[in-house]
Structure formats: structure tokens, C-alpha cells
């Protein structure tokens, strides 16, 4: 059985089912209770689970730091940071504590916290509501970073993240929250972390994307002539290198797409991994189609900043013409 639901509803479904399944799952954050979250991802959950859903004061360091303590107390915290750009206010709790607790205590204390947060551009939001900082999170050892691109994966990956014994940044692309209704399995649906998915098979070029850029990449491929293979990375850290390498060994060409700034972005890491293990299969340099090295602009210039199907198609053409 499957329902046709949107990504934001799939998130809510995962939270609902995991709280029902496990009393130690606690959902909390700013406006997640009575208000149901600013994107309605937690709508009505507080009524169903009054002992597991809490509104907290407006304090991101507190929200993330509380998760470390709740973890020690035996809970599975699922805090929400209202927008990813406000995770910086609590970034130290992630870097200095949550991500390294298992390592520094030699496995005697873990932090099974899943930090849900809306991220990325495309919804004409206020300043500092559109950034893509996944490379920053991916650079933190001990932290997993997951980005769903569609409703079914949102449910399956979030379920896996909540059950994961380690801390996970779960970045929900705001532009996809209500973009489409898609088929999502009812009941238990788990998509393992660390596994990419080939969402379109092709022979001539590999396109790697995640989050909102997967839909753009698919648009680019559908509207172009190339027989492209599209990989949805899904978990950006730890990265499923093999899925990328297998595809690149087949196609010999690769385009990596991300919304985040170019320099130090995850495309650079992907290029490096291809260099390490598939260099001699390449027929052309790996192309990057990314955001620019500028602060994410206010929304009047947002479309100029974000990679779209057009830019991705040109990237594919460059990769094929080299």
C-alpha cells in the first residue's frame, strides 16, 4: 500500500510512526508543538504524543545541547532547528559534543540525535533562510548528513536516521516540501543511510546530485539529448563512493551538482574520490555545476544563484564535448 503524499507529510508520517514505535523518541524545538512547526512538519503530533512532543524556548544551542543530555538519559532526541542557517547558533554543540561523544568516550556514550532542519533555497524566503551548509556538516567527523530528495526517501531516511545510534543532520529541502505528491509506502519504510540511489540509468554521463537538485538534474536530463545516469546521493556523509565510482567507470564522464557554494563544496570531494579510484576511466574532466562563492542573495537574485535545469544541461554538454 502506498499513499500519494508530499515530502513535508512524509516527514510527519515518519515522526508519527517512530514516536508510536518507541517511547524514547522525543520531538522538540521552536514552534513544533502547538503550532505544528512553521512548515507544518509536526502538525497535530503534540496532541497524539503529549509526552513526546515539546515546544522549547528560542535557543538553538540549548536545543542541540539538550539532545546530548537527553541521549545520556536514554532518549532518542529528534530536535528541529527551524531553519538550517540557525544551526550555527548551536553548531558548537554539534562539533564539540554530539559528534565526538562516542569517539572520546570509546563507545561508552552515544548521541542518537536526529537534527531535522529545513534547508536550501527556492522559496523566496527571508535572508539567512536559504543556505546549503551540508559540506560544513559533512566535514565534522562523527556526524552523518542526510538530504532526502523525494517524499518516499524523506520517510525512509528519517526513519533510519531516528533509529541510527549516531547523530544525524537531516536536511529537508524547503523547495521540495510541497513540490509534488508522490507514492510513499504506508507503515514501516526504512531507507538505509549511506546508500545512494540511481534514479535514472544512462550510459553517456553520470550526474550526481542531492536534495532539491535531484529534480533539477532530472529536468535537465529529460530536456536534453544525452543518455545520462542520475545518482541521488541521499546521504552526503558518509558518502556512498562506490555508487558514484561504479557509474563513472561505466560512463567515463561526470557532472556534480550542488546548490552550495563552489569552493570547498562536496563536489570537490567527489572529484577527489573519482581521482583516487576511477581517474583512468575518465574521458573528460569532471564538471561542477554549483552555487557561486557569494553569500546566498536575497530572493530578488535567488534564481540567478541557484543551479537550475538549464545550467545543469550546459554542464552535461561540456562534459560530453570535452
Amino acid at each position: 500500500m502506498a499513499n500519494q503524499i508530499r515530502l513535508v507529510e512524509a516527514v510527519r508520517q515518519a515522526l508519527d510512526e517512530e514516536m508510536a514505535r518507541d517511547e524514547s523518541v522525543v520531538v522538540y524545538g521552536e514552534d513544533v508543538g502547538v503550532n505544528g512547526g512553521v512548515f507544518r512538519a509536526t502538525q497535530d503530533l503534540i496532541e497524539e504524543y503529549p509526552e513526546q512532543v515539546y515546544d522549547t524556548p528560542l535557543a538553538e544551542a540549548a536545543i542541540l545541547g539538550l539532545g546530548v543530555g537527553l541521549s545520556a538519559a536514554g532518549f532518542r532526541p529528534v530536535p528541529e532547528i527551524q531553519f538550517a542557517s540557525f544551526a550555527y547558533q548551536g553548531f558548537h554543540q554539534l562539533v564539540q559534543h554530539a559528534s565526538r561523544m562516542r569517539s572520546r568516550t570509546r563507545g561508552t556514550l552515544g548521541v542518537p540525535m536526529t537534527v531535522r532542519t529545513p534547508y536550501g533555497g527556492g522559496i523566496r524566503a527571508l535572508e539567512l533562510h536559504s543556505e546549503s551548509y551540508e559540506a560544513g556538516f559533512a566535514h565534522v567527523p562523527g556526524l552523518k548528513t542526510v538530504v532526502p530528495a523525494n517524499p518516499a526517501d524523506a520517510k525512509g531516511l528519517l526513519t533510519a536516521a531516528i533509529r541510527d545510534p549516531d547523530p544525524v543532520m537531516f536536511l529537508e529541502p524547503t523547495s521540495r516540501y510541497r513540490a509534488s505528491r508522490e507514492s510513499v509506502p504506508e507503515g514501516e519504510h526504512v531507507v538505509p543511510l549511506g546508500e545512494a540511489e540511481v534514479v535514472r540509468e544512462g550510459e553517456e554521463v553520470t550526474v550526481v546530485a542531492w536534495g532539491a537538485m535531484v529534480a533539477e538534474a532530472l529536468d535537465a536530463v529529460e530536456s536534453g539529448d544525452a543518455d545520462a545516469e542520475v545518482i541521488d546521493l541521499r546521504t552526503v556523509s558518509p558518502m556512498d563512493s562506490e555508487a558514484i565510482l561504479d557509474s563513472v567507470r561505466k560512463t567515463g564522464r561526470c557532472v556534480v551538482v550542488h546548490e552550495a557554494p563552489r569552493t570547498g563544496g562536496l563536489a570537490a570531494e567527489i572529484v577527489a574520490r573519482i581521482n583516487d579510484d576511477a581517474l583512468y576511466y575518465l574521458e573528460a574532466p569532471v564538471e561542477r555545476v554549483t552555487g557561486y562563492d557569494v553569500p546566498f542573495p536575497l530572493f530578488a537574485r535567488e534564481e540567478a544563484y541557484r543551479p537550475d535545469a538549464d545550467r545543469i544541461r550546459r554542464g552535461i554538454e561540456r562534459a560530453l564535448s570535452a
Binding site: 539538550l66 537527553l70 532518549f75 559534543h97 572520546r104
Partner: peptide
């Protein structure tokens, strides 16, 4: 820094551990 007997490990970043205690106390 292994955790035994309900003592968390030393916390080097000044004051950051107070939030963990709030989380533990909230859990209780």
C-alpha cells in the same frame, strides 16, 4: 573519558556542558 557510574566526561568548552545537564534533568 569513558563514561561510567553516571558521570559525563570532562567538558573542555567552557559552560557548554550545562546544557547537557539541563537535558539530563529534563529527561529525569
Amino acid at each position: 573519558a569513558e563514561v561510567a557510574d553516571r558521570n559525563t566526561p570532562p567538558s573542555i568548552p567552557v559552560g557548554s556542558q550545562a546544557l547537557h545537564a539541563a537535558g539530563l534533568g529534563w529527561g529525569q
